[in-house]
């Protein structure tokens, strides 16, 4: 067993840094709707706790959401049933023992938000809701790992079909400076589109023949920058990516409100996100930290009232990538 390796599905912080794994990358691409379980045992607020315990035993589960008119109004875990047992109170209704103010997660968000939420709040399961706030599924860490496995497999098959490499694209063009510029406008507070720019950029890079590791790092850096623009900006912002043979430059900028204390903003875990945003699974204060693992250099400039600019650079040539799949050499010894 490798001491430095991380448990499957767990989010990494920068001490384990270095490279981005394929599984981590997928956590940014997969939507919660794709991995959650939709088959779930539902409880109603007036059900007896005794019946809940019987149901848990029969279905081998350790928790279930409480639903009223399609909305998740609470959650009962095995701990709640134990509390009830100790009180000798099995006739009590679910509503007396359930945890209210349940933290839910939106089905359109990427799996990474759920992983961040699991790290921040110690719960075993998260109820999943749709745009309208209706309960549509339930998510455990196990669901995520299973989902990643499934996606890795499907992804591989799909990739094999469309995979082509144009790694000589730049080499064939003669000019003093060749570069490709991609530009994306990011609207404020539109979490449903979160991750769109980053997955488009990543796809473009793969098509250009960028090595997977570079595409991953770029994808994650752009995703975090994108989420920052969605959460914090007044009028949204722009992400501009310039791809050159030697480097990728990512520029994320906006026109306000600006950051008062940049050093503080760069500290792991520091966040100015509102509770509302946090409940959506964003704003854990790890965005800039995640970016710094992925890029070779970054620079954050901001003026309150004017705007913020985050410049990031990923070098292409220092990486051992654009691999020449060196083949076995034949030697003609007897």
């Amino acid at each position: 067993m490798d001491q430095t390796s991380r448990f499957k599905g767990k989010i990494v912080t920068d001490q384990a840094a270095g490279n981005i794994t394929r599984s981590e990358e997928l956590a940014y691409e997969l939507k919660i709707a794709e991995v959650m379980s939709t088959q779930m045992q539902l409880l109603s607020p007036d059900m007896h706790m005794g019946d809940v315990l019987a149901m848990f035993r029969q279905a081998h589960i350790s928790g279930a959401p409480v639903v009223e008119n399609g909305k998740c109004v609470g959650i009962i875990s095995i701990e709640d049933t134990i509390r009830c047992l100790l009180n000798n109170d099995m006739q009590a209704p679910v509503s007396e023992y359930m945890t209210r103010n349940v933290i839910t997660i939106n089905s359109v968000e990427p799996v990474i938000s759920a992983l961040k939420t699991f790290v921040t709040i110690q719960v075993g399961r998260l109820p999943v809701v749709n745009e309208g706030g209706d309960l549509v599924g339930i998510l455990t860490k196990g669901d995520i790992t299973r989902g990643l496995l499934k996606a890795l497999q499907h992804d591989y098959q799909a990739e094999e079909v469309i995979r082509y490499r144009a790694s000589h694209l730049f080499e064939d063009i003669e000019s003093d400076r060749t570069s490709l510029i991609l530009r994306y406008n990011i609207a404020p507070r539109d979490f449903t589109k979160g991750g769109a720019a980053s997955s488009n950029i990543k796809r473009a890079l793969v098509r250009l023949g960028a090595p997977p590791q570079i595409a991953r790092r770029t994808g994650i850096a752009v995703y975090e920058a994108e989420i920052n623009l969605i959460i914090h900006t007044t009028n949204g912002g722009v992400i501009r990516v310039e791809i050159e043979p030697q480097k990728i430059t990512i520029d994320a900028y906006d026109d306000g409100p600006g950051i008062a204390d940049i050093d503080q903003a760069l500290r792991p875990g520091f966040s100015t996100a509102t509770n509302e945003v946090r409940e959506l699974g964003f704003g854990a204060g790890m965005g800039l930290v995640n970016i710094s693992r992925c890029v070779d250099s970054m620079k954050l400039e901001s003026t309150v009232g004017v705007g913020t600019r985050l410049k990031m650079k990923i070098n292409l040539e220092t990486q051992d990538a654009f691999r020449e799949g060196s083949t076995a050499t034949k030697e003609t010894k007897a």
Binding site: M1, R22, L149, Y156, R323, G325, A328
Partner: peptide, 21 residues
């Protein structure tokens, strides 16, 4: 292996090995 990443599935191991020569 519980400590290995979920990405260590047969087709990806094979492809990655070959890509690395």
């Amino acid at each position: 292996s519980p400590c290995a990443e979920v990405e260590m599935i047969p087709p990806l191991i094979v492809r990655e090995a070959i890509e690395r020569g």
